[in-house]
Simulated assay, not measured.
Amino acid sequence: MTVQIITDSGADLPKDLLVQYNIDVIPLRVYDEQDTEFLDSVTLAPKQLFDGMRAGQVYKTSLPFYETIRQTFVTYAAKNIPCLYLAFSSELSGTYQSAMLVKQDVEEEYTEATISIIDTKCASTGQGLVVLEAAKLAQQGKTIEEICNHVTFLTQHVEHIFTVDDLQTLVRGGRVSKVAGFIGGLLNIKPLLHVEEGKLIPIEKIRGRKKVLQRMIDIMAERGSDLENQVIGISHGDDLEAAQKLQEMIQERFGTQTFVINSIGAAIGAHAGPGTLALFFLNQTK
């Protein structure tokens, strides 16, 4: 029986891939300053969020509803369909912990249910690439054990290299330290960050957008493995032009042909802000 792959909207995968690979997505929640509640990329599009942020609106985020997670699991448990939930990094969200509680609840009611949950330690399209590989294996008829083994390997080797226009947005949301946030907005200095054990870590500060793109490519060369044959992820905060430029630079330098490019969703966008540009690849492929 085919394994059902489930993720949350932190994965930032394009809708066409979600449909093609039958990936079920649980939306995170987003709130504006008037406490209006939105569902990430369902009732609040990324473009709407970024326009609001440019106008001075501040957003906050929250976990998916407990009942939403539960109903998703029950949908498959009731049909005896094994499912694998690949969660947004537990260092950045409580979604993984919440899903573990739901799993216990559902398994008490549906004693034959097979529900596996993995903390990807990834975010945005880094998480999305892991989810996509899992979904491909599911379509190939792999067992849940085989998929979990491969996913566990991938989560240990996904590189996240990204820059934001204003690091204070991440600081305000508690995603990086205030010391690191001090450099944001000074003299056109752009922070370059990565993800380490699921946490956001500033690594360098670079003056100017053009130099940031080149440095992202250089780090990719230093850390990447078999880049020509990988699927490379690029996500952006309402800056498709920059994402496409980064894609061209990668193609020219490494010969890579397969990319997943998408806007950052509203939940991650609320913390990263407009102008964010993120690059995802593997530092080891096997």
Rank of each mutant, 00 (worst) to 15 (best):
F65K: 15
L132A: 00
Q244K: 12
T2P: 15
H160M: 02
V151P: 04
G255H: 05
P46T: 11
S93V: 07
G181C: 04
P64V: 11
A87Y: 14
V171K: 05
D40S: 01
H194V: 00
F254Q: 01
K178Y: 11
F88K: 01
R209M: 08
E67M: 14
S116M: 15
I23G: 00
E133L: 01
G273S: 10
I69R: 07
L49K: 10
V58D: 12
A11R: 04
C148G: 10
N22G: 06
C83R: 12
E91R: 11
V19K: 14
L227M: 05
L154Y: 06
L213Y: 13
V102H: 04
Q284A: 09
V164P: 00
A278M: 10
N188L: 08
I81G: 02
L129H: 06
V19I: 14
G255R: 05
E33I: 13
P274Y: 15
V176K: 00
E146N: 04
L200E: 01
L186D: 08
V58E: 15
G10N: 05
G52A: 03
Q168R: 14
K199L: 02
D40M: 05
S225E: 14
S89I: 03
L39E: 08
K205V: 11
K142V: 03
L277Y: 09
L170I: 00
K178M: 08
Q168S: 14
E248M: 13
L84T: 10
N188S: 11
S41H: 14
Q244A: 06
S62Y: 13
I268D: 02
E67Q: 15
